[in-house]
Amino acid sequence: MHLKHLASAVALLLLTACSTYRPGELNIDRSIQAKSQNSRVEFIVLHYTATGNEASLKILSEQNVSSHYLITNHPEPLVYQLVDENRRAWHAGDSEWFGRTDMNSGSIGIEIVNHGPEGGNWEPYTKAQTIMVGALLRDIVRRHQIKPFNIVGHSDIAPQRKVDPGPLFPWKQLAEQGLGRWFDETRAREYEQEFLRSGLPDMSWMQAQLQRTGYAIPRIGLSGKAMKNVIAAFQMHYRPSRHDGIPDAETLAILKALP
C-alpha cells in the first residue's frame, strides 16, 4: 500500500511538471546572485539647463536630449527623475574622461535650472539648489560608490563644446562635504611661489598633468584654442575667479596640488 501511494505521488509530480513546462517559455531563477559585481554607473555629470523650469522640463522629456534628474530653481526646488538610473540618458554627447568615451553609458546626468551667462554675467545657483544638489549627489554616491574625481561638469568632459555648469557652480562647497575632488590649498600656494621664482613648466608638463587628472588633451598640436578651452574648463572648476584659459602660476600650482 505504501509503495502504491509513493508511485502515485511521483506520477502526480511528473504530470504537474509536464503541465507547467512549455518549450520556449522563459523561466529564469534569480534566487542566487553573484558576489563579484558592482554598479555600471561610474560618473556623475552636472549641467545647467540654460532656460527656465517649464522649458527645461519640456525639452528634457520630449526632445532628443535627456537627463536622469532635473532640479528646478523654485524657492523649494523640485527634483524630477526623468530617466531610470539603469538606462542611458542622452546628456553627455561627445565627451571623454580619463580616456573613457561614450560617457552616457556609464554616467548619471543631473540638470540644474540655471540660465548660465546672460549679458556677460553668470546666474548664481541658489542656496536651496545647492542643498538639493548635495542631497541628490550624496544619495547617488552612496548607492553607486562614485569616486570623488568622477563627479564632474559637462565642461570637464567636453571642454571644446560646453561651459556648464559654469564658474559659479559650488564645487568647493560640495567637495568639502566629500562630494567631489578638491586640491590641497596649502601645497598649491607653495607650488605657486615656486613657479613664480623658477618659471612655469612647459606645455608638455601641463598636458601630462591635465591627463593625469582626467582631462582629454587635444590630439593635434600642443597649443591653440583647443588647449585654451581645456585650461579654461579646469579653471572654471578649480579657480573660477579667473577662467581665461591662460596657464598662469596659480592655475598650474592648483593642477600640481590636485590628487
Rank of each mutant, 00 (worst) to 15 (best):
E62S: 15
W205G: 02
I71Y: 06
L82F: 09
Q173G: 02
Y80E: 07
Q63L: 08
F234C: 02
I157D: 04
G120L: 13
H91L: 02
G120T: 15
L137M: 06
R212E: 15
L3S: 12
S241T: 15
M236N: 04
K58Q: 14
D184H: 00
W122G: 04
E194H: 13
E85N: 06
K256W: 03
T126S: 15
A17L: 14
S56D: 14
V65H: 01
P247T: 05
P23G: 04
Q63D: 12
S107D: 04
R189E: 15
N104T: 01
E25Q: 15
N229K: 10
L136Y: 08
K127W: 10
D244T: 04
A188P: 06
P148Y: 05
R219W: 01
W97A: 01
L12I: 09
V45R: 06
Q211A: 09
Q37V: 14
I71E: 09
V141S: 05
P201E: 09
G134M: 06
G199H: 03
Q207S: 08
L6W: 12
M132L: 14
S155M: 07
W90A: 09
T130C: 09
W122R: 04
A34P: 07
I157C: 05
E190A: 04
L14H: 04
L252N: 05
H47L: 09
V10C: 08
C18M: 13
N64D: 12
R138D: 12
W122T: 06
L12F: 03
N27D: 14
A249W: 09
L57Q: 11
V83F: 03
R181E: 12
D184G: 00
L14F: 12
F195C: 01
I28Y: 06
I246N: 06
R197N: 13
H243G: 05
R181T: 13
I32T: 07
I131S: 07
D156F: 02
S61Y: 06
I131Q: 12
I157N: 04
H47M: 07
P240H: 04
E54V: 05
H91C: 12
I140S: 01
Q193N: 10
L26H: 07
D29N: 15
